[in-house]
Design a protein around this nucleic acid. Sequence first.
DNA 1: AATTAGTTCAACCGCCGCAGC
DNA 2: TGCTGCGGCGGTTGAACTAAT
Length: 237
Amino acid sequence: MVKKPCCDKSGLRQGTWTAEEDRKLTAYITRYGCWNWRQLPKFADGTVSGLARCGKSCRLRWMNYLRPNLKRGNFTKEEDETIITLHESLGNRWSAIAAMLPGRTDNEIKNHWHTNLKKHVKHKPSTTKLHDKYTNNQNLNDDHLQINPIIPPLILESSPPPPLSTNTQSPFTTTDNSVESTKADSVSDFWSEPFLLDILSDDLPTMGASAGFEFDLLDGEILSPFGFYDDLEPFSF
DNA sequence: AATTAGTTCAACCGCCGCAGC
DNA sequence: TGCTGCGGCGGTTGAACTAAT
C-alpha cells in the first residue's frame, strides 16, 4: 500500500498518511473547505503543521478516504450488479460509475472491479434486473439520476478561505509579503488551535450543511468511519 | 514454523479538458 | 490563439496481508 515512504526532492511527504495528517487535513477542509487543492499544502507546510503533502495527494486522500458519508467495507450484491451493469454501458469510466453509487469512490470501485468483478463477469455475463432496465432504456443518464441521485459535491469550491486578515483583497492572488505572513500566521493559528470539533460544536451542523455534506450524529457523537473522532469529547447542541 | 504465491487496496503518475488571462 | 494553472480521471504500482504448501 505504500509506494514511497520517503520524501521527494521538494520535501513533501509521500506514502501512507498518518492518523495525524488525516486529522489535520480533515479539520482544515471541514473548517475552510477546499478553495484550491494545490495551494492548500502551502498553508499547511511542514514548518507549521507537519502536513507536507502535495495538493493532489491531499485531494486524493480526502476524496477516497476522509470524505464524510463514504461507505467502507464490502460491496453489497446490489452494488456489484450496479457496477457490472454500468461498466457494460460506460466502460472504464470509474468516476461516472462512482457517481451512481453514493458513498463509493472511483478508486474503490476500480479496485473492486479489478480484484473481484472482472473475473466474475468473464464467467458469467450480467443478466441482472438492472442490466435489463438499462439496456431497455435509451435515456441512460436520466434513469441513473432517478435510481441514485448524484450526491452534491462534497468539496466547498466556493467556500471562504482561511481567515487571513481584514484585508479585503484576495490573499490568493497576490504575493505581497505582508499578506503572506498574515496567511502563515493564520494557518499557524489554525493548526495550533485545538481540533475543530472541540471548539466548533455549535457551528458544526450548519457548517456541514453549508459545505454540502452531513455529519452523522448519534446521541451527540460524531460517527466517523475511521475512528479518529472517537477520542473526542461528545458534544451536544 | 517457514516459505512462497496470490490478493488487496492506498497511493502515485501522467495525461486531459477546462477556465482565465 | 496560445499559455498557464488547476481539478479530475484512469492506469499502474508495490507494500501489506492472507492463503497455500
